[in-house]
């Protein structure tokens, strides 16, 4: 209900005239130009500093639910000597962290309640529960969602986006912001390719329009050798960061 005359209109139909009348109000216009998520970005940089102080390269894993983020992290441990921990984000349960801990991987679960994404503050809280010193790399496994997590820098160095064969190659076009943010796209469950119409070529063509510098790899945990290029990529990123930090020192 309108606050001025009690009519049933809810929009501010009276206010415009008030606004333009300089007699009634002393108006001040302030040009600001601030990033709306500035506070998050500052905290994200703080998280990156935490990682870098320990020489850790951090990766933000994003995808829709069920595309194989946790499964990949469960299997990666058998393929690499690099020590890693995982910060897990889910709305409810600590199942994912439990799965990783059962494999001997250090994992900490964030339960977001109803939040559809992780932000830098949540990750910062979790970082204080993870022993960083022994680590080479760290994964932040975001909430399964191809939309919201793309808008938030959580303080990692690189974004890895997973897209599983059963989801279909059209997801790149449908969720452009997420795939635009990716440094690496992993096409997962590639052992299922013969059963689906997923075209890797068409996925790559879509990515070329949106994010030409992105790397693309097809992987399947059922074919452990397919993880090797990923292991190499992670090691290259880690080495690159270490060199960068050495040059700054």
């Amino acid at each position: 209900m309108c606050q001025d005359c009690g009519c049933s209109m809810t929009h501010d139909h009276h206010h415009d005239s008030l606004h333009t009348n300089p007699q009634l109000n002393d108006k001040k216009t302030l040009s600001v130009i601030h990033k709306i998520l500035d506070k998050n970005d500052v905290e994200a940089q703080h998280n990156r500093d935490h990682f870098e102080k320990n020489g850790i390269c951090a990766f933000n894993l994003m995808s829709s639910p069920g595309s194989g983020k946790t499964t990949l992290l469960e299997h990666l441990v058998d393929q690499t000597d690099m020590k890693y921990a995982v910060i897990e984000g889910d709305l409810e349960t600590s199942r994912d962290a439990d799965r990783l801990i059962a494999k001997g991987i250090n994992a900490y679960q964030i339960q977001t309640g109803s939040a559809c994404h992780l932000d830098a503050f949540m990750v910062h809280g979790a970082l204080h529960h993870v022993e960083l010193e022994p680590l080479d790399i760290c994964f932040v496994e975001n909430v399964g969602n191809l939309v919201c997590p793309a808008s938030y820098d959580v303080g990692t160095h690189k974004n890895i986006v997973l897209l599983s064969i059963p989801e279909g190659d059209d997801k790149i076009e449908k969720y452009p912001v997420m795939f635009r943010r990716a440094d690496l796209v992993l096409i997962t469950k590639s052992d299922l390719q013969q059963h689906f119409d997923f075209s890797v070529e068409s996925a790559k063509a879509q990515l070329a329009k949106l994010n030409p510098d992105v790397q693309v790899m097809s992987i399947s945990v059922k074919e452990p050798q397919s993880l090797q290029p990923l292991v190499d990529w992670l090691a290259t990123q880690q080495a690159g960061l270490k060199q960068q930090l050495a040059e700054q020192a």
């Binding site: 302030l30 130009i33 030409p212």
Partner: peptide, 21 residues
């Protein structure tokens, strides 16, 4: 060419506030 850089259109910005003082 795809050798481009996005210089605007990826951010969310607060640009201006008008206030009663």
């Amino acid at each position: 060419s795809n050798n481009t850089q996005i210089i605007d259109g990826e951010d969310m910005m607060l640009m201006q506030l008008e206030m009663d003082t």
